[in-house]
Design a protein around this nucleic acid. Structure first.
Lengths: 193, 193
DNA sequence: CGTCTATTTGAATGTACTCAAAAGCGGTGG
DNA sequence: CCACCGCTTTTGAGTACATTCAAATAGACG
């Protein structure tokens, strides 16, 4: 399966596509390689692209007034990533998106995406469904954060995303779950027994 | 402005509509009245509708394993409400949606919405934009919850949504912001000085 | 191997919670 | 129109969960 076929396969989870549509999609995305620790989105710059991860791992985070990093999202193979608030509204980003590993992504720029959506009803549908799914995903996270204890959130995460757990630094996971890295360390040592 | 004109005005914030499109939209929505304390969505039942609030106020909440209520969303005039996870995927709801006041809403059922979207590119665009906006909204909430203290979250809320603050019971606001009603009471008395 | 970054451990502290009871408020019926 | 009932908010005292700051240890990478 080529890199672009992975993207098409991903879209075809939502809708079926004609040969012509597949070609138009493919020509709208660029394949790029991103080295570990490299930033693809930075605060104060407008996020010009949306990224589909083919290989590797990324992390979106914000830095609070107190200087603490808070992880907003992880992305591994088959996930999308960007600062969506910045990308969707084409406003300056407030987040960092950084590669956690040497990675390969397919990127689409804002203007190309707009053209795809406005020119073709099916493409519009795809992006509508993607947005709906991410709304549902975020709502689930809000609910988890409101209703579960730190320990429950950790257990839920490692069960749901075992592939992410052992692939990202602990402090990024702690900051995603909403507590400190020291606390996660203690939690893990407690759970080991 | 009639009830339906409010809905059209809302949609025209996203796109402009032809006379014919306006009529199709209008005929897809039903006007209903909901009494205070009445539920329009309940756990285990599929949320068949999406609701646009014309007058009144609603609250979406979940009940945790420990029996505590956690407010997920408020909706007043011009806001949409439902259990979206249930509505979008047509799966059993996990949330309650209840009227906080005697209210008037415009409702659309799932099948009608699907027909609107599939038959007309512009309608698809509207719902895509709505979903994108709600993704951005939820992400902002996640960030606030991760990065701000209880007091900051409260201050941010009353500044952003003064019209909601004085209209809903305190315990619903506390549970939205992620702390207890006792804590909010103490916080308010502290801030009064 | 040495340096830089990430994780672990310790001790003291604070923020927000729990449980219990009192006070306040709003709606309803006599 | 007042009295009562139920629900919401306030106040108090004790407690727990998670944080902070500091230092030690472990691991990754050139």
């Amino acid at each position: 399966m080529t890199e672009y076929e992975k993207l098409i396969a991903h879209f075809e989870k939502y809708v079926s596509l004609s040969k012509d549509e597949k070609e138009r999609l493919i020509s709208s995305f660029n394949l790029i390689k991103v080295k570990k620790r490299q930033f693809i989105v930075q605060p104060n710059f407008v996020a010009k692209h949306r990224y589909f991860v083919l290989k590797g791992a990324f992390r979106t985070y914000v830095v609070s007034n107190e200087g603490e990093e808070h992880t907003i999202q992880f992305a591994i193979e088959d996930w999308w990533i960007s600062d969506y608030n910045s990308y969707i509204f084409q406003q300056p980003a407030t987040m960092f998106v950084v590669a956690l590993e040497n990675s390969t992504v397919l990127q689409i720029d804002y203007t190309s995406e707009q053209k795809l959506k406005s020119s073709n009803h099916t493409f519009e549908t795809i992006f509508r469904m993607m947005a709906e799914r991410s709304t549902a995903f975020m709502q689930r996270r809000i609910i988890t954060n409101l209703t579960k204890s730190a320990e429950e959130r950790y257990n839920e995460f490692i069960e749901k995303y075992p592939s992410i757990t052992n692939r990202v630094p602990q402090y990024t996971l702690a900051s995603y779950l909403g507590f400190t890295t020291e606390f996660l360390s203690r939690l893990r040592s407690r759970l080991r027994k």
